[in-house]
Design a binder for these strands. Structure first.
Lengths: 165, 165
DNA sequence: CTACTTGCAAATGCTTTGCAGGAGA
DNA sequence: TCTCCTGCAAAGCATTTGCAAGTAG
């Protein structure tokens, strides 16, 4: 709801009803001879509900029924199927979120104190600049560009009020 | 050397002679009651010479004399002293580079096939957009912005000629 | 029925730590 | 000489894998 082009916090789901999403996920998994089982469904639902990147630990706590090893294996499969995306935050554990084409292109605010990750939309002017810059690079370097990401590092509101920064 | 604002590959050192750099590093370590020992010197020199982010493995191979554990410990100290910076690349190991205030503000091209990281300067218009966007965010969220980073994901020239995408 | 899945436990591999001897100032 | 540093080996810990039983289609 940023006034000038940004919106923050829980990301809105692209106009996909849950049934459509499930159909889509099922299809993507089937391409790899994988099934949309209960465990995988639980993970996808959790990611939808969370609306922001979550850690394996988060998943374990919110879905105690699932074995850790299955969560790991499922995330690998879901990532290969293009359903989820793994993101790296410095010195933290891996975090996962739904793939961008199931939600919307966005970037992240990273709290360097507590590790929280907040979603953030990207203003069109910024994206235009990025695309142009990226185009130049691909030409100059022979680098085939697939995507980009922007992370803003800082201290989140709750850590600030807790005495930091 | 990019023709339109980007330059690629080995980053140029800010106008700091090696002596100055050593002085600076020594001073920053001293603030933490740490010494600029041979092992730490070796790591810093290696990072200067590399001119791009390196992994712990790289360091181990290029400086076989240093014990792994010392490399880890030294990198922690050097990072705390603000001499090096740790960067996260998806599913890869940690990589380290010299802190930006010892070099120049820049971003990264990440090869998703081989994990290579290529330094890339950022055009002024892009930085302006980023700064503006970032300013909005900080206001809207109560998020205290410290810095930002941009990663471009894709396939590097050598992986492309090796048969990928 | 035939593959894919799961849970459990063991293994893997990067990273961290304890400790005793070595080195910087 | 008082700390900090280093190497070695052992410990930690997130992640991966082997295997036998469960389950989707």
């Amino acid at each position: 709801m940023g006034s000038v082009g940004f919106w923050l916090g829980t990301r809105r789901m692209r106009q996909l009803r849950k049934e459509e999403l499930h159909e889509l996920v099922t299809e993507r998994l089937q391409r790899l001879d994988r099934r949309f089982t209960g465990g995988r469904r639980a993970i996808v639902e959790l990611l939808i509900d969370a609306g922001h990147p979550v850690t394996i630990r988060d998943i374990g706590e919110m879905r105690p029924g699932l074995a850790r090893s299955s969560v790991y294996r499922n995330l690998v499969d879901l990532e290969q199927a293009g359903v989820v995306r793994r993101i790296a935050v410095d010195d933290e554990f891996s975090r996962y979120e739904l793939a961008e084409d199931l939600t919307e292109h966005h970037h992240h605010l990273l709290c360097v104190k507590c590790g929280k990750v907040i979603d953030m939309a990207s203003p069109a002017p910024l994206e235009r600049e990025l695309d142009q810059a990226v185009r130049e690079v691909s030409k100059a370097e022979g680098f085939l560009v697939a995507s980009h990401r922007v992370d803003v590092l800082g201290v989140c509101a709750s850590c600030r009020s807790a005495g930091y920064g």
